[in-house]
Computed example of a mutant assay.
Amino acid sequence: MISLPEIQERYQEWSREREEPVLINYGKEAYRFSWSHTFGGAEVYRIEKKNNRYSATVKIYVSAFGTYEDSLVHSSEKWISEATWIEITEGLNENSFWTYPPTIERRGLDGAVWSLEGYNPTKNKCTRQNYHNIGRWSPIDSIFVSMCDLFMNLKER
């Protein structure tokens, strides 16, 4: 689905606006959870493996009342422990991240858009893919929410 030109264009525009890398062919293992509310505000959490070390990037955006323009209010990049990396990546694997349905039929007004994506230079054995993206509108699926929650603790680490 991400290969459709109009979706790919929106994805690349989102990446430029958030100053985030495009993960489709990233080249190194990385995972990202992003959350964006209908009325403004967003959070982006990315972990990646860099030369056998692990980093986490956290970005928090807010929007001024009555506008749809988000402003970056917090940005941090820090090294995380191998244990934290393993906790997140094993949590994703235990919940079948790589084979999880990319979309479902659930839409609405208001609410929030949740996106979870990953890239691994080694193709997944089941899907034979390097990249996977899961998107939901105001999810009620507890498995998907638990995968996203793995990233939320990065604010405190």
Rank of each mutant, 00 (worst) to 15 (best):
R107A: 09
N93Q: 10
N120K: 01
E9P: 00
V145G: 05
T103A: 09
P102G: 02
Y11N: 09
E82R: 07
S75K: 15
K123T: 14
Y61V: 07
R107D: 08
E19W: 10
E6L: 12
I24V: 08
S55L: 15
W114T: 04
P121Y: 10
N124S: 03
H74T: 13
S142L: 14
S63K: 03
S96A: 11
S146M: 01
F144D: 00
R107F: 14
R46L: 08
W137M: 03
E77H: 07
G40K: 00
F144Q: 02
P21M: 00
Y54E: 01
D110N: 15
S81F: 04
C148D: 05
V73K: 08
R10G: 08
G108T: 04
F65Q: 15
V145F: 06
V22M: 03
G40N: 03
I2M: 13
R107K: 14
Q8V: 04
Q12T: 10
E69R: 12
Y68T: 13
I143Y: 03
A64S: 13
G135R: 13
T127K: 03
Q129E: 15
H132F: 01
E90P: 02
W85M: 02
T122E: 15
G111N: 08
G66H: 05
Y45K: 01
E90T: 10
V44K: 00
P5H: 03
Y31W: 13
K78F: 11
E29A: 14
G118E: 01
G40R: 00
E90Y: 09
T57Q: 14
S34N: 13
L23A: 00
D110I: 15
L23M: 00
A56T: 02
G108S: 06
Y61R: 06
S115Q: 06
E69S: 07
I7S: 09
E6C: 06
I60P: 00
Y45Q: 02
R18H: 11
Y31D: 06
K155F: 07
T99R: 02
E105R: 12
E87F: 05
M152W: 14
E48H: 04
S36Y: 08
I88T: 07
E117S: 01
T99Q: 06
I60Q: 09
S146G: 03
F39M: 07
F65I: 13
A56S: 09
R46Y: 03
N95I: 04
F144A: 01
E48V: 03
T103C: 09
L154G: 04
M147Q: 00
N25F: 13
K123P: 06
S15A: 15
N153Q: 14
P102E: 14
S3Q: 08
S142V: 12
F33K: 06
I7A: 08
M1I: 14
N95F: 06
C126L: 12
A64G: 12
F39L: 10
S115N: 05
S142C: 05
A64I: 13
C148R: 01
N133T: 09
G27H: 02
S36I: 13
E90K: 11
P101N: 10
E48I: 03
A64V: 14
V73I: 14
R157H: 10
V73P: 02
